[in-house]
Amino acid sequence: MLLSHGSLGWKLKSSLYVITGVIAAFLALPIFFIMALSFGSSQWLVFPPPSWTLKWYERFFDNPQWIESAWTSLQVASLTSIIATLLAIPASFALVRGKFRGRDYLYTFFTLPMVVPVVIIAVAVYGTFLNLGLTGTLFAFVTSHVIIALPFAIISIINSLRLFDKSIEDAAVICGAHRIQAILKVTFPVIKPGVISAALFSFLVSWDEVVISVMMASPNLQTLPVKMWSTLRQDLTPVIAVASTLLILLSLFIMIIASFVRKQSNHR
């Protein structure tokens, strides 16, 4: 009765719905609030704003520092996404298909970067890269982002690979296909949604990453969140609202693609 919609008393039901409405608003409103403020004219982020304007967007796009950092973010996130996915695909195959001891331990090891606090990873990698003189390079950004993107990539590929019936691939091999050919032509199309979401989520992880990036950044090379971070520490200028809006829109766009990919795979 507590779990069936019809039989719950109206008092309990309506109070539950009201609470849920409030919570949903609590979760969603800050996101729309900041997007609305990026169009507000008030320097002090008064809400509702006295009038609407695009001047903060002009400020953003006129400042080469913002544009360059956004461009760096895009580069780092794309490279991270590609490398993490390429590392995760063979590993997932070995973990799902292999029959060797310690698979569970390996899986735990691969997902460990998700568990260890990001701050620790940031400080550790920073220490090592500082000694090697690698901080402030694209290499440093990408490698450190790949570390924390890998768990997401591994998990989503493993999940799709587990659902695939290997005997179909074996059938292709028995019919004369080479194993590689069978994997590419039979297995890959089926697990493609998993691979695509691995790539998308790796991209997103890198695109949003702050703590590690702040450590890796140099005055010449920084990502968008780093630029936001350093600006935020000085003042709350609405230009940050513009940058936030761009971050949110990209995340939203990627989430929509991801859910679209998932839907397509469900239709099969």
Binding site: P30, I31, F33, I34, L204, W207, D208, V210, P225, M228, W229, L232, L236, I240, A241, A243, S244, T245, L247, I248, S251, L252, I254, M255
Partner: peptide
Amino acid sequence: WTSLLARTYS
């Protein structure tokens, strides 16, 4: 999945 920094700023 919305940027942590954006939400904190908000």
